[in-house]
């Protein structure tokens, strides 16, 4: 038995036996999110005088960093074909726990931050347990969890904002490395979280199980994968990611809020799906999530940089462009199923 090593680097080329032109067409359409991003960047560079500056690109990265941490966890969950609706509330609670322990109970770092991360991870585990053990759809289980986390936040904070923040939170959210104009820590945190997610999904056995569970639950079970355990772990990862995002977000905003920021949920799912990770599971990954985040961040930031746009229209326009981008991605990538019963 011999292994052909010559082509291993390019499995895609071995997968196809089509004509050269259709190969190129396929490659072109497979990169639909990239073309969308380029189109947006070119458009905003022309339409706005302030958009295409290096400092603004840095801004975009900082703006999507929180979403990137949420998105890392969400990518795991969506890949299994499930969803986590609790992330925004869990993040809010995590921030509040850290701030409360630090400001009101005088705990020293790193206890507040560890406690906050522990609590959010535990909440993810609870959601996972509820949906696997009792067969509650993740949609419902995490929706309930969202209320639980949000309710705990309100209870702990008694509706008050806490702005005396733990040092770690402040550092992760708004710190810079190398002085006042140095590189933002939040971008590094986001990049590390995406990288860790990517390594796990791409190279570990667990990562393979996540994909296969989403691709076909029955096939995964038939080869001995405990799909319930996989789902439980992905929801736990998502809980941890939400907690980390909550701490970072608190540091960035400079305070712990008594209510969750609802747009985090929509923005995260929007960005991840926009990148090409399928809601039905099995397809996508961290590279796709990165693309989705960049498109989303560019769109949001670009609209801010066009002074003639009514700021009250911003959400509306974002929604329209999001929908259009989803349609374009779907059509271009030829993902519409041929079999109409599936």
């Amino acid at each position: 038995m011999s292994i052909q090593t010559d082509n291993l680097d390019a499995p895609a080329s071995r997968l196809r036996t089509e004509s050269q032109s259709s190969v190129w067409l396929r490659r072109f359409t497979a990169l639909a999110p990239l073309w969308t991003l380029l189109a947006l960047v070119i458009f905003f560079s022309i339409a706005s005088p302030t958009f295409a500056r290096p400092i603004n690109f840095n801004n975009i990265l900082a703006q999507i960093s929180t979403l990137a941490i949420f998105g890392t966890g969400m990518t795991f969950v969506l890949l299994t074909g499930e969803i986590d609706l609790s992330i925004a509330a869990v993040a809010g609670l995590a921030g509040m726990i850290a701030a409360y322990l630090y400001a009101n109970l005088d705990y020293q770092e790193p206890i507040p931050t560890i406690a906050a991360l522990g609590a959010s991870t535990l909440l993810g585990l609870v959601g996972g347990f509820a949906s696997t053990r009792f067969r509650i759809p993740t949609f419902m289980a995490t929706l309930a969890l969202s209320l639980i986390a949000g309710g705990l936040n309100t209870y702990v904070s008694k509706g008050r904002v806490i702005s005396d923040l733990p040092e770690i939170a402040a550092f992760l959210g708004s710190g810079r490395i190398g002085g006042q104009s140095g590189f933002r820590v939040i971008i590094i945190v986001a990049a590390l979280s995406l990288l860790a997610g990517h390594l796990v999904l791409r190279y570990t056995r667990f990562g393979r199980y996540v994909y296969m569970t989403g691709a076909s639950k029955s096939a995964a079970r038939l080869v001995g994968v405990n799909t319930d355990r996989i789902l439980l772990i992905t929801l736990t990862i998502s809980g941890f990611a939400a907690g980390l995002a909550g701490i970072v977000s608190m540091g960035r905003l400079g305070s712990a809020q008594p209510i969750a920021i609802p747009s985090y949920l929509i923005d995260t799912i929007g960005a991840v799906v926009l990148g090409g990770t399928a809601l039905t599971g099995g397809r996508g990954g961290i590279p796709q999530t990165v693309m989705g985040l960049l498109i989303y961040g560019t769109l949001r930031n670009g609209l801010d940089n066009i002074p003639s746009i009514d700021i009250y229209l911003k959400d509306f326009i974002t929604g329209v462009v999001l929908l259009a981008a989803l349609v374009v991605n779907l059509v271009l990538s030829g993902r519409r199923a041929r079999d109409k019963t599936s």
Partner: peptide, 13 residues
């Protein structure tokens, strides 16, 4: 797929 555990400990290659 059924044998990943036997093929390698943690990382799939």
């Amino acid at each position: 797929m059924p044998h990943l555990r036997r093929i390698s400990l943690l990382f799939s290659r």
